[in-house]
């Protein structure tokens, strides 16, 4: 009964708490290549974003739902994927001798997580758990605009905000105190194709990559959607004409 009461209080109070702490922050709305009826992913941008993820984000954040083989979707060749996968080691087994062994990752493996489990991740990050990023672009209100705004939203804390030790000020993070220190800085990742390595550019590219991990089907979805809607417009017009014709003697 007591457990139940606590739950009810929690559930009834939760929206109120959220309301109290959520003054509207405006996101820095960007134009993303995949938005709109004709939108599709910019493969070069997603590849750049993958590099940012691999060199920076991957040291704390897992991508459990993405396998190395999926990188073929964003333009990596089979050979390149084998090399990327082989950089990581995973535990496999048991073998014929009944023993677990370590081997390098293969294209069919999911991205190797930086920590073996959540507890290990918390210990390494002073109690905070870096979330898996596979679906992050769909799991936050505002989606890619929120991710971008968060990545460029680090600033000096205003004087009236007392930061909890170990926390960093962020303009768009709910409550403005985030356990993740600023992850991206200018020139942290360099690109071969001459794309600038400014902070906004890095943030945009990695956001594009994370949108792809959340919605890998988007290109196929948009292309099938356009064909389907075009067909349906014709079919519906035909039905309408038929309806008019058949009903002509009723009216």
């Amino acid at each position: 009964m007591r457990r139940l009461l606590i739950l009810i209080v929690m559930v009834l109070a939760a929206p109120g708490v959220a309301f109290a702490s959520s003054e509207k922050v405006s996101l820095e709305t960007q134009h993303w290549s995949w938005q709109g009826l004709f939108g599709s992913y910019d493969q070069a941008q997603i590849k750049r974003g993958f590099k940012v993820y691999k060199e920076i984000c991957a040291s704390c954040h897992a991508l459990k739902l993405v396998a190395y083989r999926n990188l073929a979707d964003i333009g990596f060749t089979e050979e390149e994927i084998k090399v990327i996968a082989a950089e990581k080691e995973i535990q496999d087994g048991p073998n014929d001798m009944g023993e677990m062994f370590t081997r390098s990752a293969r294209p069919s493996d999911p991205f190797v997580a930086p920590y073996p489990n959540d507890s290990a991740a918390r210990v390494a990050n002073s109690g905070a758990l870096p979330p898996d990023l596979s679906l992050i672009a769909k799991a936050r209100a505002g989606g890619p605009d929120y991710l971008y705004s968060l990545l460029v939203g680090y600033a000096e804390a205003p004087a009236d905000i007392a930061l909890v030790p170990g926390m960093t000020y962020n303009r768009v993070f709910p409550g403005h105190q985030i356990a993740m220190p600023q992850p991206l800085f200018e020139d942290m990742v360099s690109h071969d194709d001459g794309t600038s390595s400014s902070l906004p550019q890095l943030a945009k590219d990695v956001t594009a990559f994370l949108n792809w991990t959340a919605e890998p089907e988007l290109n196929a979805r948009h292309s099938l959607g356009l064909k389907t809607l075009a067909f349906l417009i014709l079919l519906t017009a035909l039905f309408y004409a038929l309806k008019r014709q058949m009903w002509a003697d009723v009216h």
Binding site: T236, F239, Y240, L242, K243, M246, W247
Partner: peptide
């Protein structure tokens, strides 16, 4: 009459 009207609606 209503089959075609319903088909148009479905469209």
């Amino acid at each position: 009459y209503y089959t075609i009207k319903d088909l148009y609606g479905i469209g």
